[in-house]
Design a protein around this nucleic acid. Sequence first.
DNA 1: TTGAGTCAGTTGACATCGTCATCTGAAAGC
DNA 2: GCTTTCAGATGACGATGTCAACTGACTCAA
Lengths: 206, 206
Amino acid sequence: MTSRAESAAATRRALLDAAAELLDSGGLDAVTLRAVGARAGVTRGAPYRHFPDKESLLIAVGTQAWDTLGDRMHALRADPGLSPAEKMRNGLIALIDIGRFQPHLYKLMFSNPPGDPTALARAAQRSQTEFLAVVADLVGEQDARRYAALLISSASGIAGLEASGQLADPKWGGVSAEDLTDTLVDMVAGKRSPAPATDDLPPGTP
Amino acid sequence: MTSRAESAAATRRALLDAAAELLDSGGLDAVTLRAVGARAGVTRGAPYRHFPDKESLLIAVGTQAWDTLGDRMHALRADPGLSPAEKMRNGLIALIDIGRFQPHLYKLMFSNPPGDPTALARAAQRSQTEFLAVVADLVGEQDARRYAALLISSASGIAGLEASGQLADPKWGGVSAEDLTDTLVDMVAGKRSPAPATDDLPPGTP
DNA sequence: TTGAGTCAGTTGACATCGTCATCTGAAAGC
DNA sequence: GCTTTCAGATGACGATGTCAACTGACTCAA
């Protein structure tokens, strides 16, 4: 019925899912190898048959999240119903939404482990390359690298500030992550809007 | 010579310094209450006479860093030799430099503890309020809140990406944190520069 | 079919960590 | 001078990451 390899793969998947769920619900402190094992139906030592380290398990969770975002970016880029600016905005919002709804996972995605500083950066490759192509469609190849780097940096910063609750401070006048993203996209797209942003979305998705 | 209160205050300071040094050199994992105590010349239980919690000690370290940055922002704002745009740029670079040279401290400054989500946000107040005033000098009161929030978000994102090593990826064409900051400042200041950024700093500090 | 080999999973053990209860001794106040 | 206060030391406990040894079921060649 189930071969040994299949069973092992299923356990590995269960461990990843368990770790992701624990991270979502209880934060990084809740991700204990014992808890992960229990939720996956195995004991504390079992994860060491699939990951050399607790850190490696967490990196795998972060990599999974980057891959999922990469798929979304790819689909977004291929969507014929969206303008380049809309693709750009939606891509940034997709990243910000992770920070909004899965703050612990988001933090993990941007935390470089001391072991392999490039592990998560490699996982982020596809997402960022897809986004780079979207930006190039809007501002041209020449400036795409610089603007894409700026946009991703800014979006991750917006998500970070919102995740830490600092965006809710009244001194910012109740500005939302979407407001900031729109301001940013407008600036890059060349149509600076000095008027207060009361409009949320340019018409395009009725 | 040294009263009991003075001695206690000195110990508290020593604990904070020890925690900050350990954080800088070895990351968050190196900040152990035992190690902090040892470096401060006391034993593992002593920190509990000054901080209710290890988390509280870390929050105090982060608060100290925010206060220092706040002083810098204040001095920057009062500097008569700098244009508003230069003040803005220097303020952002000051934040980015923390991420560059003290990445662990930087991460701590933006990590909201589960205990009191507003503790670090309160500490960040002054820095951000000073910066808000600088931005208002450049773009007016009307848009200052939105642009200041965007600039701080972006700068923290730039610092975060650089701290995680992702900015060094060749797909960004070797863009630096300063390049991105300049691009951002130029966009907000209204003079969009579609040309590649080969100039680093506008003349002003001979 | 059978036997050895592989390997996912279990279990026991250890060092380290945060934290608490208790103890000690010196400074502070009457 | 006596009592109080409190910074610091110490012992202990539970939880955690990790390793070594063990177990047992699956795999595969002969």
